[in-house]
Amino acid sequence: MTTTTDNGAPLLSAEGLHVTFPGRNGAPPARAVDGVDLDVRPGEIVALVGESGCGKTTLARSLLGLVRPTGGRVTFAGTPLAYGARALKAYRRRVQLVLQDPTGSLNPRHTVYDAVAEGLRIHGYDGDERAAVAGALSRAGLRPPERFFLRYPHELSGGQRQRVVIAGALVLEPELIVADEPVASLDASVRGEILALLLRLREELGLSALVVTHDLGLAWNIADRVAVMYLGRIVETGPVEEVLTSPRHPYTQALLSVLPEAPGEPVVLTGEPPDPSRVPGGCRFHVRCQVLAGGEAARAGVEEACRTVDLPVLPGTGGTAAACHWAATRTTV
């Protein structure tokens, strides 16, 4: 884990963001993102963590302009995101997506050179294309780059394919990348190499990143800050060391408890996350909360609040915060 030295204005911000999708067969709309504030500062790596289905990929797609919010707004470098074709094209040159499945995101009929050059061609790059492609491949750790120009994805290892995907994002010299489960499909031996690459790119290029993951161990190794998401909202956020060594929200505690190095017994959450079209009243985690089920919330005098009183949207940046009635009764760290 490294620490950013830039504490200036956010580069990318979500402010009161909502994304809803129409319900099926007369069901209420699904609140995939249900009020989120989230900032990424220049040179900072933020990990967005949560179970599958919690809304983190929808949030990431809305930050990229791929899904239009139904409420709130996205700003980049202080300017609200516009959704016209020309504005989005200019925005996506500055903010690039790295997908989790390099095999699926690379066209098997395109050479490595064409895969990396595609973004340059879409954006009408008028410089030396060959030099730009070579530079991106080299920065992504594929050296000498010319050795990879005419190769096809099936001729590469999984780690090499992921480096090609990263090179395709770097070739446009973006200011921020959104990496959706960037190492989930890779062998353990390769995961560390890709994470080290992302950290090196931050140091060398000043690149910011939002890393979407279900893996708190990955967040520990790469992020400056972590935002833990549950059922459409951020439920805990703060500097990664503070959140992961002294988690305040019971959901974060449960996620951490299943890591191999975690002390004590794993916390087994009951049931699945609720349907986002039927978000429970009160704390949205209360129907699965081990603290409530174990009687600790009652002893703290907040059991009724857990079931009935909604919690405010957490601030997007700053110190540690948890959306939890029980945590609010305890001494913060």
Rank of each mutant, 00 (worst) to 15 (best):
A77R: 13
R94V: 00
G72S: 12
T70A: 08
S62Y: 02
E51I: 00
R86H: 14
V49L: 12
L97E: 01
R94E: 15
G78T: 11
R61P: 01
T75R: 15
G50W: 09
L59T: 11
A47R: 07
A77W: 05
R93C: 13
A85V: 13
P80W: 05
G71M: 09
A77G: 14
G71F: 07
R94M: 08
A60R: 09
T57E: 00
L48G: 05
A87Y: 00
Y91M: 09
S52W: 07
L88T: 00
T58S: 10
V74I: 15
A85N: 09
G65D: 09
G53W: 06
T57N: 00
R93D: 10
Q96Y: 10
R61L: 15
C54G: 07
L59N: 10
A60M: 05
L63R: 08
L64D: 08
V95H: 05
R61A: 10
Y83G: 04
G84C: 09
L81I: 11
A60S: 13
Y91D: 02
L81N: 12
G55M: 07
G53L: 12
T70P: 08
G72Q: 08
K56Y: 04
L88W: 06
G72D: 03
G84F: 09
L64H: 08
V74R: 02
L66P: 04
L64M: 15
L97K: 04
V74L: 11
L81M: 14
A60Q: 01
T75S: 15
R93H: 04
V67W: 01
V74F: 08
C54Y: 01
T79A: 15
L88E: 06
T75A: 15
Y83H: 11
G50M: 07
T70H: 05
T57S: 15
V67F: 04
G71E: 03
R93W: 12
A77D: 15
T79F: 03
L59M: 12
C54F: 05
L64T: 11
T70F: 10
T79N: 07
V95L: 08
G72H: 11
V74M: 11
V95R: 03
A90M: 06
L81S: 02
S52H: 08
G78E: 01
R92Y: 07
P69M: 10
S62G: 01
L81C: 07
T57K: 00
V49A: 14
A82N: 08
G71D: 09
T79G: 01
V49Y: 10
F76S: 06
L88H: 08
L64P: 10
Y91A: 02
V95M: 04
G72V: 13
S52Y: 11
T58R: 01
V95Y: 01
S62R: 07
L59W: 08
